[in-house]
């Protein structure tokens, strides 16, 4: 489990960093050019590391299913939703809602055991845990706004 926590924390920190870098690009270029650049570099980096780790095995792909080819489009959907959400609601509100929704769906899919996830029965304890986390997100995002804290601009 410690390995899992380590990777989740590292991934989260990098998402925070990436959001800041991407929003700097987005200030100058339009959001589709930014998205193409971000995904293109993500592809190159995955390809290079994959080749180093796996060698030629990277391309010896078996057990391919048709939908695997289309799942990359989810990332494009994320951009469309977040760009429009932030435009309509502002970053603080939009990102708080999106983070809440991330957790709600994680809980939903864990308890349904979809996508090969190990099914974790939904309990009252989990419900309370998620409510407390969500309240933390809103305190973080909205606390201090009254004192004029400028919200951090994010968006994947």
């Amino acid at each position: 489990m410690l390995i899992g926590i380590f990777w989740a924390l590292l991934a989260g920190a990098l998402v925070g960093l990436q959001n800041i870098f991407n929003s700097k690009v987005n200030e100058r270029a339009n959001s589709w050019a930014t998205t193409a650049l971000v995904l293109g570099l993500g592809f190159l980096a995955s390809l290079v590391i994959g080749l180093i780790v796996e060698g030629k095995k990277l391309f010896a792909v078996q057990h391919m299913e048709l939908w695997f080819w289309f799942s990359g489009i989810i990332g494009v959907g994320v951009v469309v939703c977040m760009v429009n959400g932030i435009k309509l609601l502002g970053p603080t509100y939009a990102i708080s809602i999106a983070m809440t929704s991330q957790l709600v769906f994680a809980l939903l899919w864990d308890s349904l055991g979809w996508f090969g996830l190990e099914q974790v029965p939904f309990t009252f304890k989990q419900f309370i845990g998620v409510i407390v986390i969500v309240s933390g997100i809103f305190v973080f995002k909205f606390g201090g706004l009254l004192q004029g804290r400028k919200p951090a601009v994010q968006g994947e």
Partner: peptide
């Protein structure tokens, strides 16, 4: 290793802390 809920929770904490 630990399911989606726990992963997303830890990820969001690290993300907001670094931000």
């Amino acid at each position: 290793q630990m399911g989606a809920t726990f992963t997303i929770s830890a990820l969001l904490i690290a993300q907001l802390s670094l931000t």
